[in-house]
Structures are given as C-alpha cells and as structure tokens.
Amino acid sequence: MNIFRLFGDLSHLAAIAILLLKIWKTRSCAGVSGKTQLLFAVCFITRYIDLFLHFVSLYNTEKVMKLIYISASVFTCYLIFFKFKATYDGNHDSMRAEFLIVPAAGLACLINTKFDAIEILWTFSIYLEAVAILPQLFLISKTGEAETITSHYLFAQGSYRALYILNWIYRYHYESHVDTIAIVAGVVQTILYCDFFYLYITKVVKGQKIVLPA
C-alpha cells in the first residue's frame, strides 16, 4: 500500500459518501445519472466476485472496503430507482448503457491476461469502469448544469483513478509491478474527466456553479 493508493481509495469512499448524502439529505436524485450508478454497481460486483468465491482476501480492510463499495453502490441504486424514483431525471439520463456494456464485454473477451471466467469478469469490470461515468457527464451536458454537491462528487470520483495512476507509477518504479490493462483503462477513465476537472477548478473552487453552454 502506498500513499497514492491510500488517498485514491479514500477519495473513492468520499465520492460514494458525498453522493449518498446528497440524495439522502435533499431526498432527491436530480442531476444524478442512475445509469452511471448501475454501471458502477455492476463494476464492483464483477470485480469483487472473489468475495463470493471465498478467496482468501489479502487483509481484512480490503474485504471490508469491497463490501462497503458493493453495498453502498447497490443502496445508491435503490435510492435512485425506488425510494426517490419520482425525482429521477430519466429524460436526460438517456445515454444507451448497452453501448458501454457490450463493447466492454467484447473487449474483455479479446484483450485479457488469462482467458478464464474470473479474469474476464475482472477485465470487463475494469473496462466498464473506464466509461461508466459517461452517462453522468452526458446528463450534465443535457441539463447544462451540475449542482455544486454533484460537482464535488464528480471531482472525488475522478481523482480516485487519477491517484491510482500515480500509484501505478510508484509501483512500477519501486515494485516493478505493471498491470497494463488496469493502467490503460485508468488513463482513459481519467482523460474523460479532464474537461470536467477544468470546469471544477476554474469555477466551483471560486464558488461558482458549473453551467455548461446549453
């Protein structure tokens, strides 16, 4: 474990907590893409399948973190699609999730470390996570704005994988550890946040709200 991965995981936890708080406190999921949250839930379940196969986890905190990620993302989907369904902005959350899931699944079967079920599921989860934020970014571009709390959620969510890139550089240098699939997908994922990061740093930090040219 290194500082980059630690802060990456903390940033990821913060993102999940910020989103849950926003929905729970405002009792509304306006401005939140339910599809992105569904895709994240699928990512966690397919990636942490070892929890269900009784793989010996490396250390307890990791098992706890995996359980938190899975339960929090499923609970977030429950809030969006059931509890606060009336506030779900289905019209603007219109990016076809199939266009993300099918290519990720296909690519996972073509480019993977080992052609076995659990490895392909993990690879699918990595590829899907790289593009899972697209429906959320698409929704913001359709509504033309993002609530400040949602911007903080996106900043934390984007920072998590950006910090993981630093973690991979660190591990390459000190542990000669390289996982090309995770690195390439992580770089693509972080690049997708670039224009949002620019807007966040130039606007939200100054107290303004993000309003996209509609």
């Binding site: 080992k114 993990w122 996982d179 995770a182």
Partner: peptide
C-alpha cells in the same frame, strides 16, 4: 508482477 496472484488492488 506475479501472474495469477489475485488482484491486490481495489
């Protein structure tokens, strides 16, 4: 990187 060592990152 030990191949097959189940992924040690989240």
């Amino acid at each position: 990187y030990k191949d097959g060592a189940w992924k040690d990152e989240l």
